[in-house]
């Protein structure tokens, strides 16, 4: 490669070494630090997602009425949080994650509403099909059959009542009551003011009380 004389090239190498050497060392230190930070951040993200994923799935499932779709939406929200917002402070992850998820659930509800309107227009019943017998079968891993049946019935009644609420009331109720977000975090997740959260939540509770009756008071 060196066709122009050794002296000049050697001097060039020394000058470049001097110019880049210290910056390069500093950069490798930065890279090592960056690697350690990335690993720590990944562990924190993993812990955060592991802590919210099950409730997130159930919230999405109540919102969509379909576990498989809810699973897709939760995974989508995880991917988006990790790719776009991993660098944000950890305290912001919960409102960001649930904001992504509620947006996805809302989109899914809109799509489903349109699909059902189209299907009913063509004379169908607006539902996708018969219930999956495997999904309906009791899970042998949890609880006595009586308790499990009662729990499932209770939850089915509650889910039906929540689905009958307007979308914003559903979100406010599930984020506040099920996920346990405070008013400020719920407002960030829903993209509205704290006052709106309180209004939606209050209306949701009153509507649920009216729908569920005295046995739930």
């Amino acid at each position: 490669m060196n066709r122009r004389g050794g002296g000049r090239t050697d001097a060039g190498v020394v000058a470049l070494e001097r110019r880049w050497g210290s910056r390069r060392d500093a950069h490798w230190d930065c890279r090592a630090e960056r690697g350690a930070r990335a690993l720590e951040q990944e562990q924190q993200l993993n812990a955060f997602l592991a802590g919210v994923e099950r409730r997130a799935l159930r919230i999405a499932e109540i919102g969509t009425g379909d576990r498989d779709e809810a699973m897709d939406l939760v995974q989508d929200a995880m991917i988006r949080l990790v790719r776009k917002y991993a660098g944000r402070p950890e305290r912001e992850w919960a409102p960001l994650f649930f904001r992504i998820l509620t947006n996805r659930v809302r989109d899914s509800q809109r799509r489903r509403a349109v699909r059902n309107r189209v299907i009913s227009w063509f004379g169908g019943d607006g539902e996708d099909g018969r219930p999956d017998p495997v999904a309906e079968a009791p899970d042998p891993a949890s609880g006595a059959p009586d308790e499990q049946l009662e729990m499932r019935e209770t939850m089915a009644v509650l889910e039906a009542a929540i689905r009958a609420l307007p979308a914003r009331q559903q979100e406010a109720f599930m984020l506040r009551n099920f996920e346990g977000l405070d008013v400020a975090a719920t407002a960030a997740a829903m993209g509205c003011s704290e006052g709106s959260v309180k209004t939606h939540y209050s209306r949701a509770v009153h509507a649920l009380r009216a729908r569920l009756g005295e046995s739930w008071q």
């Binding site: 009551n177 939540y201 739930w216």
Partner: peptide, 24 residues
Amino acid sequence: RYEGGGGALEERARRAFDDSVEAL
């Protein structure tokens, strides 16, 4: 959390939800 004034309902709903999460 109880802006709606329906504490018992909220508590019961939350318990039912938590049970359903545990039963996954």
